Amino acid sequence: MLIGSILQAKGTSVATVPPDATVTELLATLAKLNIGAVVVSEDGVTIAGIVSERDIVRRLHERGADILTQPVSSIMTSEVRTCGPDANVDELRRTMTNHRVRHVPVVRDGRLAGIVSIGDVVKVAIEELETEKDALVGYLRR
């Protein structure tokens, strides 16, 4: 299955914050949208970085509560792993596992086109296993 199929099902909306937003503003966005990561983008199209809940917790532990008033750019991951809509879900699952990332922005023609989470990838794997199981059970009942 291709990443584009996941985006067709879940949509292409991506939460973004500008690099100069404060970490407190970032936390409000995460809480309001009930999500685990946001793409850092100046214009909602290009990717400057990504920030996850884990990033916030780690920086809070390292630097203390002062990070809450600092810009998101001071805690974001600037080397963002991305994929295209034509990427294979199995390949992305391996990448996410090997590099310990849970959110991967999808880029089409240099523009932000969606985001895929580890939950989306696991859901596809479960659906494929259920389809396989049903086929095997059907075969055995013949």
Rank of each mutant, 00 (worst) to 15 (best):
H103E: 10
L60P: 00
A113G: 05
A9D: 13
H99I: 02
P19C: 06
V23C: 08
L27S: 05
I118A: 12
L33A: 13
E62K: 06
D20S: 13
Q70C: 05
M1D: 08
T29H: 02
V116F: 05
D86C: 01
D109S: 15
T46Y: 03
H103W: 13
L30A: 08
I6S: 05
L112T: 11
M1L: 12
V107M: 10
Q8F: 07
A125N: 01
V106L: 10
M76Q: 04
R108I: 11
E132Q: 12
K32D: 15
V116G: 06
R100V: 14
T46C: 02
K32M: 07
N34H: 12
I75E: 02
V80F: 06
L2T: 10
V122P: 01
V51C: 07
V57C: 02
P19D: 05
T29Q: 07
R93W: 08
P18F: 00
E42L: 09
R102Q: 10
A125T: 08
A28G: 12
I118D: 03
A125E: 13
R100W: 11
G49T: 07
A28D: 13
R102F: 12
I3N: 02
D66I: 15
I47P: 01
R59L: 03
T95R: 03
T77K: 01
D134H: 06
P71N: 02
R93I: 15
Y139E: 10
T12S: 13
H61N: 09
T29S: 06
I126C: 03
G114R: 04
A31N: 09
K133G: 00
T29C: 10
R93F: 15
S5Y: 08
G84A: 14
A65F: 10
D66N: 03
N98H: 10
D134P: 00
A65N: 01
V124N: 00
K10G: 11
I115Q: 02
V124E: 14
D90W: 03
I75P: 00
E42D: 11
I3D: 01
V104W: 06
L68E: 03
L2W: 07
T24H: 04
S78F: 04
R111T: 13
V101Y: 07
A125L: 14
R59N: 14
D55A: 10
G49H: 02
I3H: 00
I35A: 08
V101N: 05
S41T: 02
E127T: 12
A135K: 04
T24Q: 09
E62W: 08
T22C: 09
A65D: 08
L33E: 12
I118M: 13
V116L: 05
E128Y: 08
G138S: 14
R142Q: 15
V45E: 11
R108F: 12
E62H: 04
P85H: 00
N34G: 12
T77G: 07
T16R: 00
R58T: 15
L129I: 09
D20L: 06
L33G: 04
T29D: 05
G44I: 08
M1A: 14
E53W: 09
R100Y: 14
G49M: 04
V124M: 06
D109Q: 14
M96T: 03
D20Y: 08
Y139N: 01
A135H: 09
R93D: 11
R63T: 04
K133C: 09
R59S: 12
V121Y: 06
R94N: 11
R63E: 15
